[in-house]
Nucleic acid binder design. Sequence first.
DNA 1: GGTAGACCTGGACGC
DNA 2: GCGTCCAGGTCTACC
Length: 290
Amino acid sequence: MRFEMAPHAPFSLSAVAQSHGWVRLAPFEEGGDASGLTYVDRLGSGRVVALRVREAAGGVAVEVDDTLSAAERDEIAHKVTWMLGLDQDFSDFYALARDEVKLARVEREAQGRVLRSPTLFEDVVKTILTTNTSWAGTIRMVEAIVSQFGDPLPADPARHAFPTPDQLASADEETLRSTAKLGYRSPYVLELAREVASGALDVESLKVDDIPTTELRKRLLAIKGVGSYAAANLLMILGRYNFIPVDSWAVKMVSHEWYDGERVGPAEVEAAFERWGEWKGLAYWFWDWS
DNA sequence: GGTAGACCTGGACGC
DNA sequence: GCGTCCAGGTCTACC
């Protein structure tokens, strides 16, 4: 089955896919061509399907190798809209960016959208797995929990969907430590999964627009394993750009760009982008560091 | 409020 | 091949 969706212009699927490393984390798969991507998704019914998303004349085309009910099609359309930010409008950011040579390309290349997973639960888990490790380590840890705990794709059982909170909650800490090699992050992921599975924590409710950003950040920081970097990263995913996800790379780049290689800290990184106000995070994210 | 040390893994390096 | 060191954020205890 195939259907098309129209995004808010300007839009570039490859710009979304390459917005950060998420496309290299299971169950995302980079498409065969430069612009597409694939995602193995577990639908609400429990059915597992592979979504292929491609550029199309009217925006993006979604392809699934199965017939879908009307409800399943709507569910997928809803998820793809969120994952690709099809309804996001960056015209205010572009208006500001036109006067900055280091951001000159953002409007031309339709940058601004950040690739998201269908659920915030998945993005919180993945963000925790980016902390205090190398990127290769993150890829390995995410692959491990997806292949060990996610439901297989019937047509190709080697591929799996991201595990649900229930599936991760039923894991034991020792398995997460020794088999999935999550190390000290294991209790964080387990606690999050158990709280979401039990209903004690409703992470998906944080996707709404009517929570002030400072309150949203406070709620994210209340999740064990989520510190200032992880909270800022998740705020970016949620479309809030007031904070910069300051990691060692950010410190290095700001030191090089504005401080002649002198050692700097998070405060200097924030200060370097202060003038971008509510767009601070985006200005940092898409800054041309070359 | 600020800081030091522990947490865990993989990669780089020296022997 | 083995041992050591280091990088990568967050948490906790302590001042």
